[in-house]
Amino acid sequence: MGRMDDESSSIRAAQRGDLEAFNRLIMEHQSIAFNVAYRIMGDQDSAADATQEAFISAYRNIKRFRGGSFRSWVLRIVTNACYDELRKRRRRPETSLEALSEFADGSESDGFEPLGMHEIEPEAEAERSELIHAIEQCIADLSPEFKLVIVLVDVEGFDYKEVSKVIDRPLGTVKSRLARARANLRDCLRQFGELLPSSLRLEDEVVG
């Protein structure tokens, strides 16, 4: 409760132009903002750019915030910044050599914070890295709308109502998009069956 009060007072101070107060809000939400951006964009540089742009936009428009969940409000700005960047890419598609080399050798593991994976054997670590890349590849293949919903619910643990606020769509849309995203992702992951842990290995069955 005290944390929410702190956030409310920081928001009010930021609306009065207090930059330090706004930076406190950034520190509170920058991790989730960057992770959502990363899942949507697929690479850290683009995600960082979109996140920074989103926070600048949030500071510029902080006076328009009318209460409710500040996290949802910020994440909506982040996702909009990501969609803008994706639209730009669609207009002028480009593939950097760096991105190609990262994809080829699969060595893009900098910055990851493995959860509950301390002191793993090198072989197991390599398999886990491959699994992560497989999942990320399947997420990247989803459409941006499906991608956002499944990341917010399954990766970030949001409930449907908050997702509804972030994407500014009704609950029914959230349910529909999430179900489709899960079905598509499951179909995609089936091709990486050998990478999956036996307990999580999917049956060879097509549903949908």
Binding site: L19, M27, T51, D154, G157, R186, L189, E203
Partner: peptide, 25 residues
Amino acid sequence: LLEFEKTKKLLVGLPRVSPPHNFTL
């Protein structure tokens, strides 16, 4: 339902990515 549960567990287990820098203004 079992398939969906496995898929969800795979996603929940995805590691978080550390931001490359602070985004404070």
